[in-house]
Design a binder for these strands. Sequence first.
DNA 1: TCAAAAGTGTTAGGTCTACACCCATGA
DNA 2: TCATGGGTGTAGACCTAACACTTTTGA
Lengths: 258, 258
Amino acid sequence: MSPYDPSAFPPFAVTVDLVVLTVRRHALCALAVRRGEPPFQGRWALPGGFVRADEDLAAAAARELIEETGLLAHDPTGPAPVNGAHLEQLATYGDPDRDPRMRVVSVAHLALAPDLPAPRAGGDAHSARWAPVESLLGRDGAGRDGASRDEEEGAPLAFDHATILADGVERARSKIEYSSLATAFCSREFTVGELRRVYEAVWGVALDPRNFHRKVTGTPGFLVPTGGTTTRQGGRPAQLFRAGGATVLNPPMLRPEP
Amino acid sequence: MSPYDPSAFPPFAVTVDLVVLTVRRHALCALAVRRGEPPFQGRWALPGGFVRADEDLAAAAARELIEETGLLAHDPTGPAPVNGAHLEQLATYGDPDRDPRMRVVSVAHLALAPDLPAPRAGGDAHSARWAPVESLLGRDGAGRDGASRDEEEGAPLAFDHATILADGVERARSKIEYSSLATAFCSREFTVGELRRVYEAVWGVALDPRNFHRKVTGTPGFLVPTGGTTTRQGGRPAQLFRAGGATVLNPPMLRPEP
DNA sequence: TCAAAAGTGTTAGGTCTACACCCATGA
DNA sequence: TCATGGGTGTAGACCTAACACTTTTGA
């Protein structure tokens, strides 16, 4: 068999899909767009699109992220942009039946963003919204009883996007344990308490504020004090920090048992 | 723009490439095949091949693994096969220039296998061999001086396979830290000392045999004693174990500093 | 003055490291 | 008998969880 004979391999369409996570009102939320055409017309889906002919996968994901949110993906080799977001490859999904029309392989990416004003619909999407991941995954106990709700908020995500979202959430949950990634959910300057509330929202647990404070301030290179303080959370003024250069957290932050 | 208009997106070829790791003679080794045709003819590369038209990505990877090694990939939902190997998706590589002839997106997979008799060349590969990863990555200080050695053992891997291999090795090195994955490098029954030598080879460090023994035997569900013993390593007879059901290691095995 | 959030101290209990020591076999 | 690897004990350093307590603001 001649592996590179053009007639010897089937053609694929390649897309990037994005799991864009943020923390809003104490809950982990993901960006969802409403599909404007079949299949799954009217259903919610993850943002995404085709990879262009001469475009790298990471570039395609960064382009989609800008189109959907206006966020610049953070390139670790360059200067940090004002509205930076963390962007990494998540996994690739290529079940032959995942798209009913043709063979599509989707390279999913995970983006972590600070709380943003309001999503703007981009491309061919009718509308976009931030929704709690538990609700998008149908785990929030919200009524799914009664008649079909295919085109309403409670309907399952299109394609295999529920699987992709679940994988992205699990990646984020485990990765903030041993890396400084949680700071990607915060704005450029933040307090220790705000960072703790990120952990609490992502993990869905309560953490001891005193031990958390000691832990993060005691890890060299994790947090850099800016000198400023804020009282935006009420109470005693809190020091402001920026994310330090350290990217791995050793020893890790421990996720409490249920 | 109509996203699914067949003329609106570029066609891609999709392949799976395999990083197959094993531990041989106290060194972490990877499976390499010699390319039989251009480009990179005569150079070593990772095994891989095209995904078929109606084939899942995982199925394609498992098929390639069998073709190259005869190993069955372990399906966690089914009964453990006799010669099982761990197989998981690693990452996807899609730089537009990674293959000089056409646009190829490669979904790389990572396989961990026990020490095997001898690789059999499969498909279009001229030959196959196990080689220490440090040598395949050109980090072993072996003479690369003098004349070009394009078609010899010391030449760099074809395409971007050095990057893929490095990513796979790094994944394996970090994953045995907090999971029971190291047992995938052992045969079905193994001793604590054999498991320790796996860690030592993968990490390239020396571990304290006493503390290691306490650690692994003290983690519930990690190791299951079979009742048998062996003296194949010399010295006092050692208990034989099988891998237990536990897949996460908590607390993790700590990788010593250099 | 009070509530709320920030930040510090302290103590008991666990885990890891390093090393001393004994055990069971083959040569 | 000796070398080799298997396995257990123990003391100190380190880490963590839990919780009492002080500090500094806005209302």
